[in-house]
C-alpha cells in the first residue's frame, strides 16, 4: 500500500493548522485564556486514501475534522483541498467546495433532523446545490439509499423509526449524496454496538472502492482504525505525535504515547498475558499545556530535555513521522 499511495496525487494538505478557542469570563466577556485545541498540525491525505486519526478525548481530533471543512473557523494555518486554500475562500466558493467535502457525524441519534423524513434529509444537500431537476434529485436520493442498504419505502420514514446502525447509514447516505471526493468520518461507529460496527465499516470500505473516496477517519478505537486505514495519525493534547503507515505504526510504534495506547488495547483472549504500560495521571489541561514535549508529564521514559524543548515532528524513517526526542 505504501508504494501505490506514493504515486498518487495529494488531495488534501493541512499546513500548520492552529485552533485556539477563547475562554471568556466576567461582565465584559473578556478573553481570559485560550484552549489550545489544535496546535500546529500538518499532514496530507492522498487521493483514495484513508487516514485514521486516534487519540484520547479532548486531544483535538474532532476539531481538526471540523476546521478542515470550516465548520469551525481556524485560528491560523492552511488547508488545501484539490489545489485550493479552503481558509481563503469566500462564501460562494466555499459552498461550491463543500460539495466535494462532506462529514459523517459522531452521534447518529443527534445528527438527523427528527422532524424530517430521512429521504428529505438525504436530498437536502442536493436541493441546496440545485443539482439536476427535482425528479433527478429524487432518483439520486433513492440510488444513494440503496448504496447503504436502505429501500425506497424507508425514505418516507422518520429517524426515530430506525436503529442506530441504520441511522448511521443514513448519515453516510447524506454525506454521499453530493458525490464528494473527501469525507471526514468523525467517530462514525463509536456509538454503535460491536455487532453492527463492522457492517458500517464494510459499507464505508465498499463505497471507497466504488467511488474512489478519500477519508479522514477519526476514532478512539485503535482496532477499528487498523481495519480501515492506510495511514494512521496519533494525536496528543492538540499535537500530532506520530504518523505512519498502518503496518509500520502497529508493528513498531515509536512514540511512547502510541506504545502506551497500543498496550492498553484489550484482547478478547484471557490466555494471552501481556506487559502493559500504565500511564500515570490524566491528560493535562489544554488551557495551559506543559512546556516542552506535551507528553513529558506522563511519559515513562522522559529525559530532562523533554521538559525544556519541544520536539519537532520529523520523518525518522521513510513515511514514519514522530515528535519525540528519543526517537531520533
Amino acid at each position: 500500500m505504501t508504494t501505490t499511495t506514493n504515486e498518487k496525487k495529494t488531495l488534501v494538505e493541512v499546513k500548520h493548522l492552529v485552533k485556539y478557542f477563547p475562554v471568556r469570563a466576567g461582565l465584559l466577556q473578556r478573553t481570559v485564556a485560550h484552549v489550545q485545541a489544535v496546535d500546529d498540525v500538518s499532514f496530507n491525505i492522498k487521493e483514495g486514501e484513508t487516514v485514521g486519526m486516534v487519540g484520547e478525548s479532548g486531544c483535538g481530533k474532532t476539531t481538526i475534522g471540523r476546521t478542515m471543512l470550516r465548520l469551525v473557523e481556524p485560528t491560523s494555518g492552511e488547508v488545501i483541498v484539490d489545489g485550493k486554500d479552503v481558509f481563503k475562500m469566500r462564501a460562494p466558493q466555499l459552498k461550491e467546495m463543500r460539495r466535494n467535502m462532506q462529514i459523517i457525524f459522531q452521534d447518529p441519534y443527534a445528527s438527523l433532523d427528527p422532524r424530517m423524513p430521512i429521504g428529505e434529509s438525504v436530498m437536502e444537500g442536493l436541493n441546496i446545490h440545485k443539482m439536476g431537476t427535482k425528479q433527478e434529485r429524487y432518483e439520486l436520493m433513492l440510488k444513494t439509499l440503496k448504496k447503504v442498504g436502505l429501500e425506497e419505502y424507508h425514505s418516507r420514514r422518520y429517524p426515530h423509526e430506525f436503529s442506530g446502525g441504520q441511522r448511521q447509514r443514513i448519515g453516510i447516505a447524506r454525506a454521499l449524496a453530493l458525490q464528494p471526493k473527501f469525507i471526514v468520518c468523525d467517530e462514525p461507529v463509536s456509538a454503535l454496538d460491536v455487532s453492527i460496527q463492522s457492517q458500517v465499516l464494510n459499507i464505508l470500505k465498499d463505497l471507497q472502492k466504488e467511488f474512489g473516496l478519500t477519508y479522514l477517519f477519526i476514532a478512539h478505537n485503535l482496532s477499528v482504525v487498523e481495519h480501515i486505514s492506510d495511514r494512521v495519525a496519533v494525536m496528543y493534547l492538540g499535537k500530532m505525535v506520530e504518523l505512519a503507515t498502518r503496518e509500520d505504526l502497529y508493528r513498531e510504534p515509536l512514540h511512547p504515547y502510541t506504545r502506551a495506547l497500543m498496550s492498553a488495547i484489550p484482547i478478547p483472549d484471557p490466555s494471552i498475558k501481556r506487559e502493559r504500560i500504565i500511564l500515570k495521571g490524566d491528560v493535562p489541561s489544554p488551557l495551559n499545556p506543559p512546556k516542552g514535549c506535551r507528553f513529558h508529564t506522563r511519559c515513562p521514559i522522559a529525559v530532562s530535555q523533554c521538559s525544556q524543548e519541544e520536539p519537532q515532528f520529523k520523518e525518522v524513517k521513510p513515511n514514519h513521522w514522530v515528535a519525540c526526542w528519543l526517537a531520533e
Partner: peptide
Amino acid sequence: RMLMASVPRLRANIEPEFITGQ
C-alpha cells in the same frame, strides 16, 4: 459466536463480521 466474530482484533487479518438485523 457471531458476537465474538464482530470484535475487531489488533494485528489480525480477519475481517470482523456483523450480525444482520437487530
